[in-house]
Each structure stands twice: as C-alpha cells, then as structure tokens.
Amino acid sequence: MGERKACPDEAIIIDIPEDLEPDLNSTCWIHRVPRKLRQVHEAAYTPQLISIGPLHYDEPKLNAMEQHKTKYHDQFWKRDFSKHIRENDIRDFIEEGARRERIWCSYAGSFELMNNRDMFFRVILRDVSFIFELFLRNYEHVLDNNDKPEEMKKDIQDYILRTPWLRKAVELDLIMLENQLSYFIFTELFDFILKKQPENQGNMNIPPYLSKHWKESESHDFFIRITCEFFIDYYRNGKATIKKPGEVELQQLNKIKHFTDLNKFAFSDDLL
C-alpha cells in the first residue's frame, strides 16, 4: 500500500507539548529549552552548579550550593539598609496580588513547584536575596579598589568571588534561560526596601553608594549597574562597556525580562 499524502485542503493538527508552548500573554516568560535543542549540547542549556528559580529546584546535583544561597540570603537581610524590613513586610511584598500573579506567570510549562505555590514564592524570594547579596559584594569590591594602584588593591574575601572557577560557573549558570528570575522582582524589591527606610534615622542605615531619596529611575539605574558589573566578564571577554548612569531610560529598563535579556539594554552598542 502506498504512503498516504495529505491533501492541500486537509487540516494537519500538531500536538505541541505544554513545555514548548509558552504563554505569550504573560509579563515575561521563562521556559525550558526545547528537548531537541538541548540534545545538541546538554551542558550549554543546563545549570551545572546552582539552581535559580523553580525549573531546576531541588535537583540533587545542584544541592551543594543551597547552603551558600541560604547564607547569602540571611546576610542580605542583616545589612544596615535592609534589616529594618520585617518578615510581615516581606510577606506583604511577595503576596501583593498583581505582583504575585506576574511572578507566577513568568514561567511557562510545568515544574515541580506548580502544586506548591507557597514554596514556589519562598524559593523565588530566597534566590532574589542571594543574587542581591552576591552582586552587592562584587560591586563593593570593585568600588573599594577603583583608582587604586595594583599593590594597594584589597583581596576579595567573598567565597564565591575569590575562587575564579567558582565565580565563572555561577556567572554562566545565572545567564541561562532556564535559571532566570523576572527582572522586575529585583527592581521592585529594591524600591520597596529603600522607601521603607525609617524616617527618624536619616541616612544612617544607607551605605554611601545608596540613597533613600532616589527617584525610581535612579534606583533602577543602580541595580542595572551592579548587575552589569557582575556579568562584565561574560560580555566580549570583559571588553564591553557598561552604559553610564542615566544613559538607559526607565522605559528601557522596564523592558528587561531577565538576565539573559540584559545585553540589549545595558551595554554599549558598539561592542555588542
């Protein structure tokens, strides 16, 4: 019997798995790389050391870094400029209706935490805090060594940042599509922390590189700067130029979906 061919007018139904059919109406979607693409080079699309967000949560090979993530999370909330935030404040922030739904809708397809929303949001908040602390430590080290002769520069004390192979592995994992958090979570949490600074303490809780009187555009500009400082070696082997404060408009910053999406907005066009 010969092979049956479809007539031109016949409808052909293709069943696309849910994981390959992300919701295009969501605020920004993060999904798994298609299986056929992953098969070409598994390691290029899969985090090797650290899990961020829900897609690779609780994978045994990534659990070694969980203790460090928890430690960085705790130390972030002990910083002078954020220790005034109470557990109830954090819960109110993460459970705000519209924000909660935007975070949830950022992820397309299925994942283990789909049936445990409370754990999902705890994981998101823990990972946001870890990344904040990591970026701030890196930025503070850069700031401390700016314009100093080589012999006067201080060695970095942070465990991840002082170990070249470990820093590079974390950097590469944080840029992978499946390992992303929505960018707006960082900027909105940062604004939330700065705006809730106690009025009676002036700027005592604020390090010199921050200000609670910043406009939204200034606080977002600062976060993009510490983010770019961390990823600078990833772009063009460190030859990329970070756009100066004010060069990226707030409207552009609000279009950034996640760190994988970063280079279109934050680095100079002549080098990318």
Results as ranks from 00 to 15, higher is better:
A240W: 06
L174G: 03
D261L: 02
I30N: 05
A98E: 12
M114V: 03
D144N: 09
N200C: 09
T241Q: 10
F184M: 08
D92P: 02
E151Q: 09
L37H: 04
G109F: 09
S82P: 08
H213D: 15
R32A: 07
V248L: 09
N115M: 05
E150A: 08
M1T: 01
S110W: 05
R91N: 09
P22A: 07
D118R: 07
F135T: 00
L172T: 06
F231C: 08
L189M: 15
H141C: 04
Y107T: 04
K195Y: 15
H68W: 06
F231G: 10
F121K: 02
T27M: 07
L262R: 07
K255N: 12
I90A: 10
W165N: 04
N146G: 06
M65H: 02
E133R: 05
D127Y: 10
F265P: 02
D147H: 08
D9K: 08
P207G: 09
G53L: 10
L62F: 12
Y234P: 02
A240G: 13
E18I: 08
E112I: 03
Y107F: 14
W77L: 01
E249L: 09
H68M: 10
I94L: 15
D269T: 03
E133V: 01
F184C: 11
P22V: 01
F111P: 08
L174E: 05
S217V: 11
C105T: 10
F121D: 07
D233C: 09
R35L: 07
K78M: 13
R86N: 08
L253C: 07
I52S: 09
R35G: 00
S26M: 01
E101C: 02
I160N: 10
P8M: 00
A240Y: 07
I16V: 15
A64H: 10
V248W: 13
S51R: 02
F120V: 00
P60K: 01
W77V: 01
H84N: 15
Q157H: 06
H213M: 05
T241N: 04
A44I: 01
D158Q: 06
R86T: 15
D144E: 14
I12T: 08
K212I: 05
D270Q: 06
Y72K: 01
L134A: 06
C105V: 00
